[in-house]
Amino acid sequence: MDPLFLATPKVGTFQGEQSLTNASGFFFARDEHLFLATSRHVFIDEGSEHRPDRIEITLHLDLQDLTRCTGFSMPLYADGTALWRQGQDSGGDIDVAVLEIDREALPKEAVLFAFTPAHIVHDFDAVPVDATLFIAGFPLGFHDEVHQLPVLRRAAIASPFGIRFQGQGTFLTDGRAHRGISGAPVVMRDPVPATGVLPWRLLGVHSSRLDMGNRDQALDESLGLNCAWYADILLTLTEPPAAGLASPA
């Protein structure tokens, strides 16, 4: 099985014991640190008053028997202070956040794969306009419930890769997306696998569907376009706090 499926856990948000929403995310490792990366609005969305106090991800415990899984809960606050890291640019808040995972607290049997800085694309010319992209996540919470695995949605690049769409740190993809896929990695197959056991290039973090506010609901179909933040924001968010520009929420 492709390790991409074990790099992208399902994310559930909770207020105490009350389940709130489902989302997507992925593991990102830097040096000895392990993070869960997802959309900022998964952790907090002021507009909709979405304010969970913890999340739960699904971990696999056996590479041969994928039905062996467990939930792993992580708090979002400690003494009233947010534990995740987020960032800003000239356009305001960036809809990407990371939450460090305590490796010592993980089950010893946990099986997971993680993206690293080596997976992030820096050579924009390496991503041709006709590249086939994939978004690995949990649309509307849908997934293989027996093996707790995400689904892959095929997508295409819809704006020039390397150019900030509308002046923000985003690019567009063309593909079907639904609620629940927020925070999913946007990837393409590594043509010359130099990224180890996870042979994918990490392009971005899926944020949301994009539509026209003045679209005629009766006459015009949805644009079918999606917004993704460039993955290099993860390099800022995972720097040591004293050295990086990332800030707690």
Rank of each mutant, 00 (worst) to 15 (best):
F5H: 04
T8L: 02
F14E: 02
F14Q: 01
S19H: 14
L20C: 11
T21C: 14
N22H: 10
A23C: 09
F27K: 03
F28V: 05
R40Q: 12
E46N: 05
G47W: 06
E49Y: 09
C69R: 11
D79A: 14
W84D: 01
Q86A: 13
Q86D: 06
E100A: 08
A105C: 05
K108C: 04
F113R: 10
F115P: 01
T116H: 05
V121L: 03
V121M: 06
H122T: 14
D125S: 13
D130W: 03
A131D: 04
F134Q: 12
I135H: 00
A136L: 11
D144W: 05
D144Q: 06
V146P: 00
L152W: 06
R153G: 06
A158N: 07
P160N: 06
F161Y: 15
G162D: 05
R164F: 10
G167Q: 11
G167K: 13
G169P: 00
T173Y: 06
H178C: 03
A184I: 02
P185G: 03
V197D: 15
V205E: 01
S207E: 13
S208E: 06
D211F: 01
M212A: 12
M212D: 14
N214D: 11
L219F: 05
L225A: 11
W229P: 00
I233D: 02
T236I: 07
L245Y: 12
